[in-house]
Simulated scan of single mutants.
Amino acid sequence: MATTFLRTSDLAQELDVHVNTIRIYEASGFLSNVPRGTNGYRQYRAIHLEQARLAHLALHWPYVGNKQHLIDLVKSAANDDLGMAMEFAYEYLADVRAERTHAEAAIAFLERWAAGYALDASSHPMHIRQAAAHLNVSIDMLRNWERNGLLTVPREPANQYRLYGSAELGRLRVIRMLVKSGFSLAAILRMLQQADSGNSRNLRDALNIPSEEDTHDYVVVAADRWLASLLKLEQRAQEMIELIGRMIEMLHTQ
């Protein structure tokens, strides 16, 4: 029985991408060797389609961590080292889940602050250099957060130097933890504006659901809905694991 080969356009149509994307996958080493017929046309097999599907699933933004790890995963599959690809996929799943844990912890920290609990016990106001050292951040970061509207810092009447008291330092701790956990400044500002208006309920949703005005004013990126994005990334990692499992089964049945 003659083998039925697939064309570049067949792979592109299946993945809903341009044919040049498939050619880039091949040139990048994301597909195993593709033989050519006597007419010079590429002769893709079913395994090439699954390899292209894995590359498409793994490498489109957003992703967590170092993209090179995902590239190594895809290339391992292309080199028929599916055991290594599966190992990389589970490591990536662990990375995504760790990011989710950090994001959830940051939100719990936020909710404690919103409930009125003090987050800093500093007994005297600090100037910006002292505050930066106290929080282990740079002066530029403090200025940037203020410039982006995340907080207003009172000033000394005599010289207009910034004075950070316990309230400002506590708020900055929330901002710093959310930033470190991957939330965008736009999402944090949206949440803080809601909290400052007296509505401290559902601040988690404020971090993850842009307002109607936001969606009309700019393109909402993944970091503006980071927790929701992490849930999707975990699902994507699970899909990668299932796909590699199918590829292993395909090779075993050949």
Rank of each mutant, 00 (worst) to 15 (best):
T3W: 14
R7D: 09
S9P: 13
D10P: 05
I22G: 04
E26H: 01
V34D: 04
R36Y: 03
H48T: 01
H48V: 01
A52N: 04
R53E: 05
A55C: 07
H56D: 07
W61M: 14
V64R: 00
Q68T: 03
Q68N: 03
D72K: 03
V74R: 00
N79G: 02
D80H: 09
F88M: 09
F88S: 08
F88I: 03
A89K: 00
V96F: 00
A105V: 15
R112P: 09
A115R: 10
I128E: 04
I128M: 06
R129V: 11
H134K: 08
E146C: 11
V153E: 08
P157E: 12
A158R: 10
L163F: 10
Y164E: 02
A167G: 10
E168R: 05
L169V: 04
G170D: 08
A186C: 11
A187M: 02
A187Q: 04
I188E: 03
Q193N: 15
G198M: 08
A206M: 00
Y218A: 11
V219T: 15
R225S: 05
L227P: 07
A228S: 13
L230V: 06
L233F: 00
L233M: 07
E242Q: 11
E242D: 12
G245Q: 04
R246E: 09
M247E: 04
